[in-house]
Design a protein around this nucleic acid. Sequence first.
DNA 1: CGCTGAATTGACAATTCTCAATAGACGTGG
DNA 2: CCACGTCTATTGAGAATTGTCAATTCAGCG
Lengths: 243, 243
Amino acid sequence: MTKLPACILNSDVLTACEGCLARDRSNEHLIAGLTCAKRNMESGQHLFVGSDEQLHVYLIRSGAVCLYKMLRGGRRQIVAFKFAGDFIIPAANGPHRFSAQAMTAVELRVFPLALFRAAASGDARFMARLHEIAVAELCKAYDLISILGHHDAEASVAAFLLDVDGRAALHVGGAGAVILPMLRTDIADYLGLTHETVSRVLTSFKRKGLIDVGRGRTVRIKERATLAALVGKAESAVSSGAR
Amino acid sequence: MTKLPACILNSDVLTACEGCLARDRSNEHLIAGLTCAKRNMESGQHLFVGSDEQLHVYLIRSGAVCLYKMLRGGRRQIVAFKFAGDFIIPAANGPHRFSAQAMTAVELRVFPLALFRAAASGDARFMARLHEIAVAELCKAYDLISILGHHDAEASVAAFLLDVDGRAALHVGGAGAVILPMLRTDIADYLGLTHETVSRVLTSFKRKGLIDVGRGRTVRIKERATLAALVGKAESAVSSGAR
DNA sequence: CGCTGAATTGACAATTCTCAATAGACGTGG
DNA sequence: CCACGTCTATTGAGAATTGTCAATTCAGCG
């Protein structure tokens, strides 16, 4: 079994890959046959679009990226936000299912997909890691489904704020404030709302004293419990009884 | 490498597992250490609920099952329908994230989760199959996200009809009609609508001549292209331009 | 300092939800 | 075989939320 970098083997890679690739300066080999290149992109640039062939695995070192799909009527559905430490791994063969756009300046590590897969197919541990990552994405997807199914703007935005707040990569010093790297439009396209509605809800939260909205897209959560109540911690997978 | 049953190795298992387990009568060993039991359940019964420990992998031989989660306000979000040939595989450790309820009489094959995982962890091919299944579920989840993001009842119902129509397991003889094994309420809880809205949309489709709604929850699609247009085959992952 | 894109706020329209009543299907039992 | 009861589906009317369109304020940047 080949030697795998910690960033691939560790269970918590999705949120923290510091220390592992931090050591790789100038494209040194991480494991036999699996190298990564550095790439930097500016805000607004696309890593790839839906029609592109899938050729790479991306690891985000810093910044924020969104994965989206264009829907009928010009509507855009963002299916995931990716932050520092997150992987973007093509799921199947063929063209990309999504487009990936940098929402801020982004620092990337890029692995050739073919090599990545070759390394995985020969190694059950690596394969298991990939599976683990896919499962984590699946859980995220189900969370988003729950949010979209709510049909409740306040609950959606509250869930979004709590989710983002849980990502260490986005915190700024001191008062526990979070930088929202995305536009109101991006939040709206993620939650299935309009940017006006997102704005209204945030203003409403601010007025109720649940959050502080500061300069530079900074948000600080003041009443976490109240937000959680809005989301409905009553959310439960338990049956409410046979039908 | 152990000998694996075709139902696990084949790529198209999610929709068709006939012929593989058809041969296993009375719990014979399928591969070393991996046996399955038969179980039958009636409509309305739960395979498991969200608080249960995850102990089994299920393969549906016949019938229909839904996976759901209860949301705040008593709202129920169905995250997936499972039909004949589909697996229900616990993703992570801990309790179930969802409840699973039989929507019709169901014939099941039940594998002990521990044995299933043991077989997988030692076998890169098996692991790869599991990954493949998870990825397929992920794609389904993203499809549902796209539907829920639409915020358009007609598009949602049209997408649902076309999706269900694509599942061979649900077709009845002759005129290409499909049996919808689920209630209007189930469809609504899947699409983030109310059963009244689902009913209204179906009636509207019927009046427009897009579908026939027959006896016994039978639906026949007459104007596939029109329904597809409603969904918006314009759906695309291609960027509409840099921002 | 002014320009440009983003965010906020307002007024109104549209869709869906809620509540309610009716009609239909299915199974049971007389 | 029909009547009844129950569950499901349909239909209707009104309420509520969000979307749409438009105008204004704000922030960042040259």
